[in-house]
Design a protein around this nucleic acid. Sequence first.
DNA 1: CTGTTAGCGCCTTCAC
DNA 2: GTGAAGGCGCTAACAG
Lengths: 334, 334
Amino acid sequence: MRDVAARLGVSAMTVSRAIRGDSGIAEPTRQRVLAEVAALGYRPNDLARRLRSGLAHGLVGLVVTSLANPFYSQLSVGVEQVATERGAGLLVASANGDADRERELVEDMSARRIAGLIVVPAGNDHRHLDPRQLEGAPVVLAATPPRDIDVDCVLVDDFGGTYAACRRLIERGHRRIGFLGLPASLWTGSERYRGYAAALEDAGLPVDDRYVSRHRGDIELAEAATRHLIGLAEPPTALITANNRNTIGALRTMQHSPTPVALAGFDDIELADLLQLPLSVVAYDAAEVGREAARLLFDRIEETTTPQTAARPARTQRVVIPTRLVDYPRVPAP
Amino acid sequence: MRDVAARLGVSAMTVSRAIRGDSGIAEPTRQRVLAEVAALGYRPNDLARRLRSGLAHGLVGLVVTSLANPFYSQLSVGVEQVATERGAGLLVASANGDADRERELVEDMSARRIAGLIVVPAGNDHRHLDPRQLEGAPVVLAATPPRDIDVDCVLVDDFGGTYAACRRLIERGHRRIGFLGLPASLWTGSERYRGYAAALEDAGLPVDDRYVSRHRGDIELAEAATRHLIGLAEPPTALITANNRNTIGALRTMQHSPTPVALAGFDDIELADLLQLPLSVVAYDAAEVGREAARLLFDRIEETTTPQTAARPARTQRVVIPTRLVDYPRVPAP
DNA sequence: CTGTTAGCGCCTTCAC
DNA sequence: GTGAAGGCGCTAACAG
């Protein structure tokens, strides 16, 4: 910048103004400056710029469990779309389900003075996600409502979706329905379980603990759990799987099983339409979860930046993304 | 920081030293400072820190086509693992196959003074990826070798993988084999096509242009192309698909087709083991592509940081990730 | 319209 | 072992 200014015999301030498109600068001057900038290949240092202007704007963080899970990669696609629209960069990190790791990541990001943070929390305790701990950067939770902190969130209709899926199985005549699920410590785990249990109860069916397996959502564990369930003396005739990893694990296991077990799962599965098996899934727009979370986040960021127009209370928001039940195969087999 | 210093009646310098674990500070002093830091919840501002110390360290960029494609999300998982190990943050962005967009993203990232950049280029022209244009930040290309610039890259064995896949179809007696591929302007597109064509030629078979469709790798286009190919007067009896999007498109289309067409595709497909169709895939570790790219990148970053130990020429590296041919169903049907 | 002064928050360098 | 000065690159705030 100094070089540019020196060469043109102007001050650094003039260069600064020209670059930013500030008003209060003569058009010819701006042209000269911009030409020289181009000639020298000078690019302003965003770090220094933000340091001075105070704004940490320009970088938002996203902490998920793992990008290897399509739910999270779709989510991040949505977040990225909105971030890009707003001219912000996206810092992503995977906590791999580890709450301690999550805390480290979040602290690291806040040290980097990100403008805001979207988190899919790995645990029950959200105190480390309090914006007051994070240099005031707004926080939005995805897939889980805040606990003991006051922030916006975007949820999926976990209860309703699972309820509908379980109901569908009941309508088809199933009476012994198992649940292959996530840990109760996870919001999604407990809500989806609740939907399952409620559907059974509303149908006058018992919730049989033998048919319920709650574990981390990973394919291997789901396979083992499925093997166990279908090996029972009186096995379930149908299973509800609590997320895409569980659905895949169940599908894999049942492929080698002689006894057919009906399946309904949370999360849509790519290629589900090509499986020859009947399968119902609770589908929803995961990218929209991300987009919505990002929108809420940027609204808050602007709110913080803007000089508090009036005394708007700005209550905490909670957006719920709807689900729909999809039956595969799409065209019912005869 | 000033607050902490003031409260303790020490200088900011002492606080700085305590935080960084600098030597030259008395242990009791450090303890007092750290206690006060914790009490006030003070967190150092990374931006300011880096601004002064010059180090752009701590943030690397990744530009891919789309995180919605499992190849790229796996790749980013690998990059993220290594970045995290090295204590760096990861800035991701999708160019969606648009070369202009890619250039914008890259420029934006370099304005943010990232320490290095990994790119899966969207086009043929790589001049905008020259480190000299990017404040000297090292660049590593993934999936595509550099063209007109001198940077490291990590490749997949596109030619060998496709060659093997095509050979497999030939071994199974196919003589009319189609190719459902990516644009020739993409490295992966042309290499995979080359592998296909070479396998045919080596088997004394003609490359019939009617059976070749080259288009952007997206599911809808692949479906249309497949419909076209199997609708030909003398349709191919087998298809090679150039990436996972094409494979899925072909699978979808062929599900509704009476004429069976054998399929072999580049990229493994989750759930391929559950499809009832025979399918061969060129599998490889996409996360390893990312890890390897990140390793190369951090090596270069250190090289830049380190005061040039000896006159190591540091030649440009090119790493190739191997592929293996996997036949589904794993246990061949009778 | 342009320049000067000062300082964002931290760290390097050199005194003490 | 600690502190004071100065500056990283840039831009508010005020001058002219």
